[in-house]
């Protein structure tokens, strides 16, 4: 499903170019559950953002579901994100002061899903993460774990092929983190492809495959 070949990416910092990814080759099949690990600054977030069609690459090729992705084409990238990819972040990134259900509804507005269908799908997604009774709450009225579950519902609502999560348990205590991982497990067993960045090896243990990064290269993959 995902084919990365020789991905190179550097950030311009003033006059110097800081290399971040130095030739990544990675294949991920549909239905996999992959954890990306590595020390801080090793390029995990950058790699995940490229996979999620959020960031550009300098060199190399990215093939998603058999099609080359032109990472310079903003409009195409936005379309791919809208229809194929769901994002989960460490800091949840819910829009404050709008309710859980409105947050969940948001991706469907940009995907031009009709109103009736949206209502139904919001309900389904909130049921899936077990938060139907909190639909009208705004983020500040929810616990961290509940906020992350709203974010997962939002990531799922457009029926993506791929869920990308950047340290989804990074802001949660360990028992809440395990609950979220249970949910990921469940989703993966239902067929969802999941790629997740984490620092914690007990979280990575929920995945079936671990890719270890070091200085922008894959150190090992098993």
């Amino acid at each position: 499903m995902i084919e990365l070949s020789n991905i190179v990416k550097a950030y311009q910092m003033g006059d110097v170019k800081v290399p971040v990814l130095n030739g990544i080759d990675l294949r991920i099949e549909s239905g996999e559950f992959v954890a990306i690990m590595g020390p801080s600054g090793s390029g995990k977030t950058t790699l995940l953002n490229i996979i999620g069609c959020l960031d550009t690459i300098d060199q190399g090729e990215y093939k998603l579901s058999g099609k080359f992705v032109d990472t310079q084409d903003d409009a195409q990238m936005a379309r791919v994100r809208s229809t194929h990819i769901g994002f989960v972040f460490q800091l949840f990134n819910l829009i404050p002061r709008i309710s859980a259900e409105r947050n969940v509804e948001l991706p469907m507005i940009y995907a031009n899903i009709p109103h009736q269908q949206r209502r139904e799908r919001v309900r389904q997604a909130l049921t899936k993460v077990g938060l139907t009774d909190r639909a009208r709450h705004v983020p500040t009225q929810l616990s961290g774990g509940q906020q992350q579950r709203v974010a997962i519902a939002r990531a799922l609502v457009n029926h993506p092929d791929l869920l990308v999560a950047d340290e989804p348990t990074g802001s949660l205590d360990s028992s809440t983190g395990r609950e979220i991982m249970q949910m990921f497990r469940q989703l993966n067993e239902e067929g969802m492809t999941i790629i997740m960045v984490t620092h914690e090896s007990d979280i990575a243990a929920y995945a079936r495959r671990t890719v270890q990064l070091l200085d922008g290269r894959i150190q090992y993959d098993h």
């Binding site: 999620g52 409009a75 994100r81 229809t83 994002f87 990134n93």
Partner: peptide, 16 residues
């Protein structure tokens, strides 16, 4: 700014 980034991440285009 973060909200704008988020909206883009979940599929908003430049024009949106």
């Amino acid at each position: 700014t973060r909200e704008i980034g988020l909206r883009k991440a979940i599929g908003a285009s430049k024009n949106d």
